[in-house]
Simulated scan of single mutants.
Amino acid sequence: MLFIRVDANEKIGIGHLMRCLAVANEANEQGIECTFIISDKETERIMINFDFATICLNSEWNNLNNEIDKLIKVISENKIKLLLVDSYYVTKEYFEEIGKNVTLIYLGDLNYYSEYIDCLINYNNYYHKFNYYNMYDKKKTKLLLGTKYVPLREEFTNIKPIVRDTVSNILITTGGTDTYNIAGKIVDYFIKNESENDICFNIVVGSLNRNLDILSKLEKKNKNIKLYISTNNVAELMIKSDIAISAGGSTLYELCACGVPTICYAFVDNQLDSIKEFMATETMISVGDIRGREEECINLIYEKVQILKNNYKIRKKMFNKMQNIVDRKGSFRIVKEICDLGCKS
């Protein structure tokens, strides 16, 4: 049995939870039962939408050290052997205290060494900046690094990516919360230009988005705008899209799996490395950090869309590069390695 410690809320969004759900669903496919351990009622309300057992610690999602005793008690009571943790609020003390009691797997960026981590998963395209192979040289920690370990949900497994001759659908996705209402500002900029009337804009947002009323009004006023809230068919929307405009994060790897030429940007620090790497390899077009320069970036996004609309060869080149990055087998590989850990624990 695999236990997963993760949270989702308005502040951190749902990205961590979604990638953990991808691992959990694949684990179920391979006959491994999964239970989620969460901090509070907010994550619990989100988890209701998914068919997994949960254990609520009634703790603080952004202060994991304060939950150590509670989590150790849960580990003991449930005889937990395998625990996957996905949170940016982990500390060396947390790893040490929890790692003494369980086989510990960490999913995410980590820029320091901990002997208490049994398996480290960092699927990001910039993982090399952490120099893990030297950091963990000759240590017991199993390293699962690079985009071959991107954990994609089941809906991305059997898709058939394609590049079309013309552009008629543009996908806009800005993360689970979109604090700055970037989606609304982008689409408002586009619809004010009459030359975009032949384009359908599909906007994907999470249920935690604070700007749903604004986006709903835009949808009602414009026939070429469609709003999708917490949709279960993101892969289908991506496949039918000719261009995507997306914030950084795990969504960029989903877009790679679908081969959608993408213009990306960052609005939090932990998205910067990824978009820089995608830009450096000419896999995606990046307009950089949008914070404090929204007007400039939205204008750049519009300009880049015009370039992509009018150049099939560029879109085809981006498609090919994206397809070489993500092969849609990451979740399977992760669970296989976890199974091996379980056999040894």
Rank of each mutant, 00 (worst) to 15 (best):
H16R: 01
L17E: 01
V23Y: 03
E26A: 11
E33G: 10
F36Q: 01
I37A: 00
I37T: 01
K41I: 13
K41L: 11
T43W: 00
E44S: 13
F50N: 03
I55G: 06
S59N: 11
E60S: 14
N63R: 14
I68R: 00
K73I: 02
K73C: 04
K73W: 01
V74F: 03
I75Y: 04
S76E: 15
K79G: 11
K79D: 15
K79Q: 14
L83M: 12
V85N: 02
V85G: 04
S87H: 10
T91V: 06
K92R: 14
Y94A: 05
K100H: 12
T103Y: 07
Y106M: 03
L107K: 05
G108N: 05
L110R: 13
N111I: 09
E115F: 08
I117C: 05
I117M: 01
D118Y: 04
C119D: 03
Y123F: 13
N125M: 11
F130I: 02
Y132D: 02
M135K: 09
Y136L: 03
K139C: 11
T141K: 01
L143T: 08
L143I: 06
L144I: 05
K148H: 04
V150A: 08
P151C: 04
P151I: 02
R153Y: 02
E155H: 01
F156T: 05
I159L: 03
K160N: 15
K160R: 14
D165P: 09
T166S: 13
V167F: 02
S168P: 00
N169Q: 12
N169G: 05
I172D: 04
G175P: 03
D178G: 10
V187L: 01
S195R: 13
N197G: 11
C200Q: 14
F201Q: 07
V204M: 08
K223L: 14
I225N: 00
L227V: 08
Y228P: 01
Y228C: 03
M238R: 02
A244D: 01
T251P: 07
E254V: 10
L255C: 08
C256H: 08
A257L: 04
F267H: 12
I275A: 03
I275Q: 06
K276F: 10
A280I: 07
T281D: 15
M284P: 03
I285S: 01
I290P: 03
N299P: 06
N299W: 11
N310T: 12
N311W: 09
Y312K: 13
Y312E: 00
K313E: 15
K316S: 15
V326Q: 02
G330Q: 00
K336A: 10
C339I: 15
